[in-house]
Amino acid sequence: MDILEIRDLTKTFGGLTAVENVSFRVQEGSISGLIGPNGAGKTTIFNLITGIYKVTRGEIAFGGRIIHDLEPHTIANMGITRTFQNIRLFKRLSVYSNILTACHGNASYSVADSVLKSRRFRTEEKCLREDAVSLMEILGLAEWQNHIAHSLPYGLQRRLEIARALAVKPKLLLLDEPAAGMNADETQQLMHHICRIRDEFSCTVFVIEHRMDLIMGICENIVVLNFGKKLTEGPPEEIQSNPQVIEAYLGKEARIGA
């Protein structure tokens, strides 16, 4: 079953075509990758999926429903959340508050409920707080819970962003360069976390990454973009040995990554 289907997707900015006639599918329950050189249009595709950009042409279907004309918050509540290439945490709030804010899906109490401290307010709010605490524990953030987000080490900020996205209970989690700026150790840890997330939260993970060890290590299917167009797609072994990909991407990146 495909959870996400992209059909002939095109996005132009004025005269610039950032994404051109791209089609691919993401299988439900998989960890899939999206790679390509800088400026290839990867982040733009994430922005299109999450409704932040409006598509110029083409279609995006999520679980069989066309979503590309919906508002970002509607798409999020349907089950697609993401992290950002340049981290976007609620900077001045604590780790706990960052996650608690995102845990709003299970509550429906009104403003009046919160003023009157009604029973509904108290039970729902207790649930939200328990959800937030358990997420912090699962992702190893519990000991940092009172720290202000922007004071955290970089690797933890990235992890917090993932935790916040998970608080929305997504069916599809989009990670935009989650290993950027991490050392080998942290990257290993991240790979472990991503696999665990897929299993424990039973969601699909779609990840943009430059680190080939991560992509090749955890992805089942990889889509390769170059200059806004799809170059090829396939399992890691196939991508690794594809001469086109090596020319467009791996050769250059291997040098940069070294």
Binding site: R82, F84, R92, H104, R164
Partner: peptide, 12 residues
Amino acid sequence: EEELAAKTIGID
């Protein structure tokens, strides 16, 4: 704090 992130966690 961060409007874009607010949208992507489902806040209208």
